[in-house]
Nucleic acid binder design. Structure first.
Length: 493
RNA sequence: GCCGCAUUCGUCUAGUGGCCUAGGACACCGCCCUCUCAAGGCGGAGAUCGAGGGUUCGAAUCCCUCAUGCGGUACCA
């Protein structure tokens, strides 16, 4: 029988969608697309305590932004629904009930307090912590007594006390764990909701999931899941535990939000933050694909289609990898440089407008090629082009004075520039450049020294897009006005 | 503590017994180009392949031990 590939991404809506989730979702998506299978989105909202109302919209928006469209799940439906676990509660209860009837699970009436005390004692006496089986073999009378007292029980899996649980991980090979290391884990909580373990197994089976790709942090609980599959008599999906993403230092897991000491930069971790910071989704996808996967020794730039075509579990790494923000920045810059002027201008205009700048498309389009190779993220354009959309520049008068010169020198430069600007014909960057160079010559200055002053006068900054082109785009009048403003500032200053 | 997983330049990685005196990329340094900043070009530094034992004519690649890191050890996912 040819089994079709069905993979699912199953986040829980407890917080914003972050890097780790995005990488897992991307691998799920790539794997599904590569094999012509289905990519399913399932929401694991069984923890009512940690539920976060903003999480779902954030997740869906981020997935769409990255271009990871799901074939089944929220908004799109599908024939294996519902896709929210909270809507599937009866299913889990039925299945738990079935295991109880078959003697493979049992009700447990222990209070959280008793369990905590038990664990504390086990730790204190150096034994391994785990449920002691107190309720595993209760008599009829004891059960009746507990039931009468109104305690709402949980359901636990009766883990075999002997033997080993053996399974195969696609990346790590055969893994064997002694059953004595496994706990009688809770399947159904006292509120009637399933734990992750029950829900994931029931749903993956019912949804006919063929491959389970998930973070390495789940590897430890995989044996328990295997036991559950065995208890139900179901075939195992293929298990693939992906390496975790580490902090850039290479030490420690990349936390969703790490509070750092003074002087240390707080890192972006949520996908919506990357979006807001001006990263291109295509760059994010390319970069994320490389976190835990590599094609060969040389190549690291891939289009989405190439990724789909080339992605292969055999080339997924087993060891955790640090997330390099510097390399992401570099890749993002490369992607920006690869954008057409029109495309770039469209994206930049949105950023500029979002920053409250009155940016018209035509001007933005003219500036696009000038800033293209200077930007690392789209939001860099706010700093770079702010001067073009506001006539009130803010800078220190002292910046107008070239090194090895003085106020008089600066004044001379500005006056002569003003004259020259008034006469250049046409007002094009080529002509402007010619006259400005001639001017620096006649002033006995090096172009770099003189142009520094003019740059500040025109842009309010010591660093800017190419000067002559910028002047051309601004136009003669605005340039004149700015030079006049600079002269005035110098006189006051 | 116990269990599991991992371990190649600072970082991401290539490498599956000889092609490796270990290749590429980011970051870093120098030079060139240059109106600033970038981009680009050229060059450089940077890894005794975690350590120690084996196996083999030959090991980053296979085996064992140790160390370190990470993960798990919840009525969280």
């Amino acid at each position: 029988m040819t089994q079709s590939v069905r993979v699912r991404f199953a986040p829980s809506p407890t917080g914003f969608f972050h890097l780790g989730g995005a990488r897992t979702a991307l691998f799920d998506w790539l794997f599904a697309r590569h094999h012509g299978g289905k990519f399913i989105l399932r929401i694991e909202d069984t923890d009512r305590g940690r539920y976060h109302p903003d999480a779902l919209p954030d997740l869906l928006g981020s997935l769409r932004w990255l271009g990871l469209q799901w074939d089944e799940g929220p908004d799109v439906g599908g024939s294996y629904g519902p896709y929210f676990q909270s809507d599937r509660a009866p299913l889990y209860q039925e299945h738990a009930e079935r295991l109880i009837e078959e003697g493979k699970a049992y009700r447990c009436y222990c209070s959280p307090e008793r369990l905590a005390a038990m664990r504390e004692e086990q730790r204190a006496t150096g034994r391994k912590p785990g449920y002691d089986g107190h309720c595993r073999e209760l008599s009829q009378a004891q059960v009746a007594e507990y039931e009468a007292s109104g305690i709402r029980p949980v359901v636990r899996l009766a883990v075999p006390k002997e033997g080993q649980t053996i399974f195969e991980d696609r990346l790590r090979g055969r893994i064997a764990v002694d059953n004595t290391e496994l706990d009688d884990l809770v399947l159904l909580k006292s509120d009637g909701f399933p734990t992750y373990h029950l829900a994931v197994v029931v749903d993956d089976h019912l949804m006919e999931i063929s491959h389970v790709l998930r973070g390495d942090e789940w590897l430890s609980s995989a044996p328990a899941h295997v036991l559950l599959y065995q208890a139900f008599g179901w075939p195992m999906p293929e298990l693939v535990h992906l390496p975790v993403i580490l902090d850039p230092s290479g030490k420690g897991k990349l936390s969703k939000r790490k509070v750092r000491g003074p002087g240390e930069v707080e890192r972006l971790t949520f996908i919506h933050e990357f979006r807001a910071a001006g990263y291109l989704p295509e760059a994010m996808v390319n970069f994320l694909a490389l976190v835990g996967w590599a094609y060969d020794a040389e190549r690291e730039y891939f289009t989405r289609d190439e990724l789909v075509q080339l992605f292969d579990l055999d080339r997924v790494s087993r060891s955790p990898s640090a997330f390099s923000y510097e390399k992401l920045d570099h890749m993002n810059a490369v992607y920006i440089r690869g954008l057409g002027d029109n495309d770039l201008a469209t994206r930049i205009q949105q950023v500029l407008l979002g920053a409250g700048l009155d940016a018209d498309f035509l001007t933005v389009l003219q500036f696009a090629p000038l800033v293209k190779e200077r930007m690392r993220t789209l939001s860099d354009c706010i700093d770079m082009l702010g001067f073009a959309f506001s006539d009130s520049l803010d800078y220190e008068a002292s910046l107008l004075i070239p090194k090895k010169s003085d106020e008089q020198g600066a004044l001379a430069i500005l006056m002569r520039t003003s004259e020259a600007v008034g006469q250049v014909e046409p007002f094009s960057h080529g002509a402007i450049e010619d006259t400005m160079r001639a001017l620096s010559d006649s002033l006995g200055l090096k172009p770099r020294d003189m142009l520094g002053a003019v740059r500040v006068a025109i842009t309010g900054r010591t660093v800017s897009p190419p000067l002559f082109e910028s002047m051309e785009i601004l136009g003669r009048e605005r340039v004149q006005a700015r030079i006049a403003g600079a002269i005035e500032r110098l006189a006051k200053g």
